[in-house]
Structures are given as structure tokens and as C-alpha cells.
Design a protein around this nucleic acid. Structure first.
Lengths: 213, 213
DNA sequence: TAGATTGTTAATCGATTAACAATC
DNA sequence: TAGATTGTTAATCGATTAACAATC
């Protein structure tokens, strides 16, 4: 089983690049084309493909359509993935409205919020009281959830979600969530991402090209 | 020079945990305490510290205050880090309003937007026309920027920012930005983060504890 | 002192990169 | 065929983990 997140992310990037190449009229692509488009080496592309049993034609590369279909199947893009959002602060609201998910076959079907004043069943994505979440998850067999609640509520929210049947969480609360091995948690911590940029900028030597600016 | 992003992120986590431990009344901590708090091993903690020349007392662990100060200095938290945001769509707006940065000594001093109708100098964080960005960067010696513009505008935006003196970028546009070696770019792609969760959920074997749910 | 904890060195592990045989 | 490209195997690299001497 492939457990390397970077590898999956690269697969998604290949898929996105393929889409662009198709728009440009490409019918076949070589590992070299995809490598250039994504910014990796062609060996990396072929290695990734071989891990998933994707084969091309020696000398002939890969057919864009066939490759796209294979990648879509692997990435679960052959069907709509229903996702819920919990917590409608700044980040949660932005994600609920975010248009970038649609084209990736990801549909946010509902959002949940503790503050009753923010709830509404009439918005494009219904905003429901957080108490209704477990029932909603069970009734609609939701497997994926996004956490955007304050840090103090995040672990409890995760536990409730997992208890109701959620198996994968994208967490934006600035704490590392813990869970059993059979649930996937991907922690995205915006402060930490920015802090690492700040660190590298502050420690990077000033080079010729940046000195005068 | 340390180039390992994960290591820097762990350092930030140690710092955050230390803050919480201090609140609980801790005066000294052992590598084991921090390891538990962050979810790594104590060897990892000590190894990370040794990379940065942080030493404790054999048998006595680390003094919370001294350690906090050392970590803050390494992470640049001994002074305010000024940051700008470009693009006021859903994500950019959320980041501009986001309160989580303040406590980390990160200050968003201005936001830039192409749509003049969205601009305003009267908001808490001024929203300025994107044309004014290069001048603003130069005048205020801004080194760090957040990109939250549509994908088609992202590379051009980055080039302009770098040309004006920006040396580190946190990029939320769903393309991988390219730049010279002396600029740090951290690409945070929300679709890809969610897609990797979806992949692992869809491929993970259903275990006893998740089967019935 | 005895016991616990640090800090460093060595071993392991996994991912990336390189090399190259297979073959279209 | 000759040349180009794939796909796999081996080598390298870097990060994590383990082991353990030093010492408070």
C-alpha cells in the first residue's frame, strides 16, 4: 500500500498538468513533459506511475486521455466526494464558499456551526447547528470532514466526527489532532506554514540578486 | 544551515507547547514532556535542539523561560514580522481577518486587490490597489508576502513581489510557483491537501472499529 | 552514590535519484 | 535499424530512530 502523501500530491499535480496539456492539444505526453510541467524529474514521474501500475508505451509515452482516466480513478475523481465543514469562522467560511473544490469533484454538502445565529438552511451550502452533525454524518454516510473550529474545541469535534463515521479529516485548527490509526488526519497549520517561511527568510544568506532590493 | 522544514515546524510546536506548559505552572521541562505534548519521541526533541545548539541540564531538563526565549529568537519571534496579503477572494479575506497571527508576532500590515471596488484605506488592515504594491513593499521593507490570487495571476504576482524585494512567499494559489533559489516559496494547496485525505480514506482497509459505523 | 536525563554517534528506514536493460 | 523512451533495479541521500556514554 502506498502511504507516501507526497506521492499522492504529485499524482494530483500530474492530473492537473495533463488537463492543461490537453487544452493545448496534446494527445500523447512523455514523462519528460509531465516532469517539466510539475517541476520534478522524469524518473520521478515514471517511478510514481510504476508504484500505481500505470504503464505507457516505450518510445510512445502515455495517451493523455487514458492516463487522465487512470489518475482520476486512483484519486477517486470518478465520483463526487461529499465533504462537510465544521466551524464557520474566517477560514471555515472561506472554505465553504471556495469554488476551487467543485472542479475536483469535491462537494461541500453542509457546514456546521455552534453559534445558532449563524445557522441557516437557506444558504447555498446549508449551515446547520453542530448538534445535528452526528446524525447528518450517519444519514449521508459522510466520510470526510474539514475542521475549522477554535483550537480548544478541535479535538472534541474530531472525536465526535470520528464517532459518527468520519474516516478522514483536514484540520485547520492550530493543534495537532490525535486519533486511532484507522482515521486519516491531515493537519494544515497556517501559522506554522507562515512561520517556516519567516524562519528561512530570516536565516537565508543575502545573495547578490537580493542584496540591493 | 538547517533546511528541513519539518524541523522548523516542530520547533514552533515545541514553543507552542511550552507556552501551554508554562500556563500549567511548569518551570522546568524534560524532553519527554515536550515529546508527549507534540507527539514525537524524546530523542527527536533532543536531536532537534542539538541541531540548533540548544542545551539543557543533564538530569535537570530545560528551564521553560530560557528555552522559550531561545526558540523565539530562532523563530524570529523576538520582533514583529510584517506581512502583506495579495488577493482578497475567500481565502485572502479570511487570512487578512484571521486573528491567529497576532499572537505569533506576525502582523498583516496591508492587503492588495485588483478590483478597485474592494479597496479601502479605512479598514483595520488597509486594502490597497495592487498597482501600489511594489512601492509599498520597497517603502516598508516588506520581506514576506501571502499570495491568494487566482491561479492565472499567481506567477506574475510572485514575480512582481520578488522584484520589489519580497524574499518569502506563502502561496495559496493552486499552482506551484517557480522562483530563483534565494527566495523561499511555501505552496499550500488546499485542494491537494483534501485530495490526499480522500485518497487515503478511499484506499484504507476497513477495520473492525470503523466497519460498523 | 544511584538513577535519570541529556546529547551525540551509529544504525535504520524510506524516499529520491541514477543507471541501464528492454523495446517500440 | 538506430534512437528515444519506458520501467525497474541499484545507489544515494537525508531524516528519523536507536543506542549509549557522559554527567548532573
Amino acid at each position: 500500500m502506498i502511504t507516501n502523501k507526497n506521492c499522492i500530491i504529485r499524482l494530483s499535480r500530474y492530473k492537473n498538468s495533463l488537463h492543461r496539456l490537453k487544452t493545448l492539444g496534446f494527445v500523447k505526453v512523455f514523462s519528460d513533459n509531465l516532469a517539466d510541467a510539475v517541476g520534478v524529474t522524469s524518473e520521478q514521474v515514471r517511478k510514481d506511475f510504476s508504484l500505481f501500475g500505470i504503464t505507457g508505451n516505450k518510445r510512445g509515452g502515455y495517451t493523455v486521455d487514458a492516463l487522465t482516466e487512470k489518475l482520476n480513478t486512483i484519486l477517486g475523481k470518478d465520483r463526487v466526494q461529499n465533504v462537510i465543514v465544521v466551524g464557520l469562522g474566517n477560514i471555515g467560511t472561506a472554505l465553504t464558499k471556495y469554488r476551487g473544490f467543485e472542479k475536483e469533484c469535491i462537494k461541500i454538502t453542509a457546514a456546521f456551526e455552534a453559534d445558532a445565529a449563524k445557522c441557516s438552511r437557506k444558504t447555498a451550502v446549508p449551515i446547520l447547528p453542530v448538534e445535528e452533525m452526528p446524525e447528518y454524518i450517519r444519514k449521508n454516510s459522510i466520510k470526510i470532514g474539514i475542521i475549522a473550529v477554535p483550537d480548544v474545541a478541535a479535538q472534541q469535534t474530531a472525536d465526535i466526527m470520528i464517532g459518527a463515521g468520519i474516516r478522514g479529516i483536514l484540520n485547520f485548527a492550530p493543534i495537532s489532532l490525535r486519533c486511532s490509526e484507522d482515521v486519516v488526519i491531515n493537519n494544515v497549520n497556517l501559522e506554522l506554514e507562515l512561520e517556516s517561511v519567516i524562519y528561512f527568510v530570516n536565516t537565508m544568506p543575502v545573495t547578490e540578486s537580493t542584496a540591493s532590493k
